[in-house]
C-alpha cells in the first residue's frame, strides 16, 4: 500500500491542491489529513472544499475542534504573549470565514483513527495519541518514550503533525540506549508481564505540514508517503514500512498575494516568502530554534 499523509493545512489551499496532484501522480492508494485545516493563510472554505471533494479522510486537530465548536481560541498550546497575539489574529480570521456547513463537518471529525494495513497497526492522531495539542519535537522526545506510547496505545506506527516540522524515529534508528520492555507503570495492562527480549519494530512519524515552510529558508512545504507490504522498495531499512518525506513546491507567491488581499499579518506573509518562521517561535526547543533565523 502507498498512503499519503498531509499535516496541518493552515488554509494553504494552493499547497493542498498541488499535494493532491503530486500524491496522485505517485499512485497512492489513499490520502489522509492529520488535522488543523485552518490558521495562518487565506480563504478557509477553499481548503475544506478541496478536502471534501477529494474524499480525503481527516483526523480532527485542535484548530478544527475549536473552529467547529466556535471556541474563543485555537488551543494551539503556545505560552508566549506575542505568539498568542498572532495565533489569535489568524484564529479570528479563520472563524469568521469558515462556513457553518464546514464547521458542522469539523465537529464530526474523529480525534484519532486506527488503520490495520499489511499487518501493521497504524494510529493516526494530531499531536500525540494522548493529547491533541501535545508537541512531540524531535529533540525533546526520546526513543524510550515513543516505545512507551506505542505500547500504551497498542500500535506499531504513530503518525502525527502539530509541531510543523517533519521527523521520524523508529526502533531501528533511535538513540544508542534503547530497549523496549513494557514500562512498569503500565505492566498491568499487558498479559505477558515480563520484558520483551526481541522488541517489535515501531515508529513515530511527524508528517510535516502543508501550511507553511519549515523554518529552513526554503519556501517549499512537506508531506509524507508511507509504503507498506509489497510497496516497500527495500534497501537498507529492515523495517516492514518505508517513509518518504516529500518536499513540495507550490505557487507561494500567489498565496502571499491572497494573504495581502485578505489583510493577513505581514509577519505571516514574510514566512511564506522567505521560509523562515517569524511567529510562534517560543515553543521551539533549543535545537529546532537554533536552526531558524529568528
Amino acid at each position: 500500500m502507498r498512503l499519503a499523509f498531509f499535516g496541518g493545512i493552515y488554509n494553504n489551499h494552493l499547497a493542498l491542491a498541488t499535494a493532491i496532484a503530486d500524491a496522485r501522480s505517485r499512485g497512492v492508494d489513499a490520502m489522509w489529513c492529520l488535522g488543523d485545516l485552518g490558521a495562518f493563510g487565506p480563504h478557509p472554505d477553499r481548503t475544506c472544499e478541496l478536502i471534501r471533494e477529494n474524499n480525503i479522510s481527516v483526523v480532527q486537530g485542535n484548530y478544527d475542534h475549536s473552529i467547529g465548536h466556535g471556541l474563543n481560541d485555537c488551543h494551539c498550546g503556545y505560552t508566549d504573549p506575542r505568539d498568542n497575539h498572532f495565533a489569535q489574529l489568524s484564529y479570528d480570521y479563520t472563524l469568521a470565514h469558515t462556513s457553518d456547513d464546514h464547521r458542522a463537518w469539523m465537529r464530526s471529525l474523529p480525534a484519532q483513527q486506527r488503520l490495520e494495513i499489511n499487518g501493521l497497526r497504524l494510529l493516526l492522531c494530531h499531536g500525540s495519541p494522548r493529547r491533541t495539542n501535545e508537541f512531540l519535537w524531535e529533540s525533546t522526545t526520546n526513543t524510550q518514550f515513543l516505545a512507551r506510547l506505542c505500547d500504551d496505545f497498542e500500535c506499531d506506527v504513530i503518525l502525527g503533525t502539530h509541531t510543523g516540522l517533519h521527523w521520524t524515529r523508529s526502533s531501528d534508528t533511535g538513540s544508542g540506549v534503547f530497549f523496549r520492555p513494557p514500562s512498569p507503570i503500565h505492566q498491568v495492562k499487558l498479559n505477558d508481564g515480563g520484558l520483551k527480549k526481541t522488541p517489535d519494530p515501531f515508529a513515530f512519524i511527524n508528517v510535516g505540514v502543508l501550511g507553511r515552510p519549515e523554518n529552513d529558508g526554503t519556501t517549499n512545504v512537506w508531506y509524507t508517503l508511507l509504503r507498506t507490504g509489497n510497496d516497500v522498495r527495500g534497501g537498507r531499512s529492515p523495517l516492514p514500512w518505508e517513509v518518504e518525506f516529500v518536499p513540495l513546491a507550490y505557487d507561494h507567491e500567489q498565496l502571499a498575494r491572497e494573504m495581502q488581499d485578505e489583510r493577513l499579518p505581514d509577519e505571516f506573509i514574510e514566512t511564506i516568502l522567505t521560509g523562515w518562521w517569524t511567529t510562534c517561535l517560543e515553543v521551539l526547543p533549543s535545537k529546532e530554534r537554533t536552526r531558524g533565523r529568528w
Binding site: T140, T141, N142, Q144, F145, A147, R148, L149, D151, V177, F178, F179, P181, S183, P184, I185
Partner: peptide
C-alpha cells in the same frame, strides 16, 4: 537512575 528510567519510558 537513567538506566532505570529507560524501563519507564521517561521522556526528559
Amino acid at each position: 537512575r537513567l538506566l532505570e528510567a529507560v524501563e519507564w519510558g521517561v521522556k526528559e
